[in-house]
């Protein structure tokens, strides 16, 4: 058996279709570099956003923008102060409201509810002619039930 220094080094490995493989390799490498460049742009953006030093300020800013956007999109419902509204309503005479409601095509339940809430006497003579008969009967029945 020969000692190692007596064995000449020999490269056993060859690439399949070697000369073509090495002719084409620089082009393959360039394509891979291009491919990575196009891939890495969105990755770079994403990695910028997920960096801890940037993610918190960006998230906070997004949240603030979200709140601001939501606030400008919402229709203000409480802009008229409720005290002012109540004062305006109180300035209208009850009789006028009653007459207005009776002219409207309201359901019997609405009228009874309104009458109860305002403690109106639906049986009063001046109203009786304008109140439908069934409504009066229903109201009377309810009043009677309270005393039975």
């Amino acid at each position: 058996m020969k000692k190692l220094p007596q064995i000449p080094p020999k490269h056993l490995f060859e690439a399949p279709n070697e000369s073509r493989y090495f002719d084409e390799l620089p082009q393959k490498v360039r394509s891979k570099i291009l491919e990575q460049k196009t891939k890495s742009l969105p990755n770079k953006l994403w990695s910028f956003f997920i960096k801890p030093q940037f993610s918190l300020p960006i998230a906070s800013a997004a949240l603030l923008i979200g709140f601001w956007w939501a606030s400008i999109q919402t229709v203000p419902t409480t802009d008229v102060p409720s005290t002012e509204l109540q004062a305006q309503l109180k300035s209208i005479p009850k009789q006028d409201i009653q007459n207005y409601l009776l002219e409207q095509n309201l359901s019997q339940e609405d009228i009874i509810d309104f009458a109860n809430s305002e403690k109106l006497d639906l049986t009063a003579q001046n109203n009786l002619n304008q109140v439908p008969e069934e409504v009066l009967e229903e109201a009377l029945e309810e009043d009677l039930e309270e005393y039975l």
């Binding site: 080094p9 020999k10 490269h11």
Partner: peptide, 10 residues
């Protein structure tokens, strides 16, 4: 010459 690896290429 005796140890030079023979790289198979163009």
């Amino acid at each position: 010459p005796s140890k030079e690896p023979s790289y198979p290429t163009n």
